[in-house]
C-alpha cells in the first residue's frame, strides 16, 4: 500500500509539489494525469527517495521512504519512461542481478518463468539487452517487479513510445499484477489507457492534485473534457 501525506517539495523556494495527499490500496492502479511539470514525476521520485520531501511523508506499507529508504525500496518496483538495463548483460542476467539486489535469488529456470510471465519471447532471454526494443526492456522491468514480489509498482509514463500492441500487452501485465495485489502508481499522458487500465484517476496541476476519482465514475469523453478544463 502506498500513501502520500501532505507531500510537498520545493526547489530553491519554487514549489514543485504543494501538499499532495492520496492513497493507493492493494490491487489499485492509480493513474496520475497532468501536463509536463505538474509534479507527477516529482511525486514518484519522492516515493523512490531519489529526492527528499520539503514537508509531508511518502509512505510505502506505512514506512516513511525518507526515513528508511532501503526498507521501502525492497517493497517497490519501478519502471521509468525509458527503462534502461545493463546493455552487455542478457535479459536473464539483468533479471538475476536486479532481483538479487533486492535480496531474492532464483535458479535460472525460475528466472525464465518470470520472463515468460512478463511476455518476453524465450528466444530473447539469452540475448544481450543492447539488442532489445523498448517494449522488450519494459517486459524485463515487469519481470523484475514479479521476481521482486513487489507490493508497490511505480510507473513513470511507461507506455509512451510503445506501439499500440506493446502498449496493450503492457496494460494486460499491469492488470495481472493488480490481481496479484500490487498497488500501482502510474504517471501517464494516455487518458484512454488510464480509463481502461486504472482503478483510480488523479489530475495534477502546478503541484496540486486537483481531481481524484475512481474510473467507474467517469468515461473517456468526460475525462477528456475534465482534463482539458483544468489545463486551460
Amino acid at each position: 500500500m502506498l500513501e502520500a501525506v501532505n507531500l510537498s517539495k520545493s526547489y530553491n523556494g519554487v514549489s514543485a509539489l504543494k501538499g499532495v495527499s492520496f492513497k493507493v490500496n492493494k490491487g489499485d492502479i492509480f493513474c496520475l494525469l497532468g501536463a509536463n511539470g505538474a509534479g507527477k514525476t516529482t511525486t514518484i521520485n519522492l516515493f523512490l527517495n531519489f529526492i527528499s520531501p520539503t514537508s509531508g511523508q511518502a509512505l510505502i506499507n506505512q514506512v516513511d521512504t525518507a526515513q528508511q529508504p532501503l526498507a521501502t525500496k525492497k517493497m517497490l518496483a519501478y519502471i521509468p519512461e525509458n527503462l534502461m538495463l545493463y546493455p552487455n548483460l542478457t535479459g536473464v542476467e539483468n533479471l538475476h542481478y536486479f532481483s538479487a539486489l533486492a535480496g531474492r535469488k532464483y535458479p535460472s529456470a525460475e528466472l525464465t518463468n518470470y520472463l515468460n510471465e512478463a511476455g518476453l519471447r524465450e528466444v530473447a532471454h539469452h540475448q544481450r539487452v543492447s539488442t532489445y526494443s523498448k517494449g522488450m526492456r519494459q517486459k524485463v522491468g515487469v519481470a523484475i517487479a514479479l521476481a521482486k514480489k513487489a507490493d508497490v509498482l511505480l510507473l513513470d509514463e511507461p507506455t509512451s513510445g510503445l506501439d499500440p500492441k506493446a502498449s496493450n500487452e503492457f496494460a494486460a501485465l499491469l492488470k495481472k499484477l493488480s490481481e496479484l495485489g500490487v498497488a500501482t502508481l502510474m504517471a501517464t499522458h494516455d487518458l484512454f489507457r488510464a480509463i481502461e487500465t486504472g482503478t483510480h484517476i488523479g489530475i495534477m496541476k502546478e503541484g496540486n492534485l486537483v481531481e481524484s476519482m475512481t474510473t467507474d465514475q467517469i468515461n473517456h469523453q468526460d475525462l477528456e473534457r475534465l482534463y482539458l478544463k483544468h489545463m486551460n
Binding site: F50, Y78, P80
Partner: peptide, 13 residues
Amino acid sequence: SGSLRLTLSQPVS
C-alpha cells in the same frame, strides 16, 4: 543511459 535510476530504485547503497 538511465540504468542508474533502476539500480538506485533497488535497496542498494
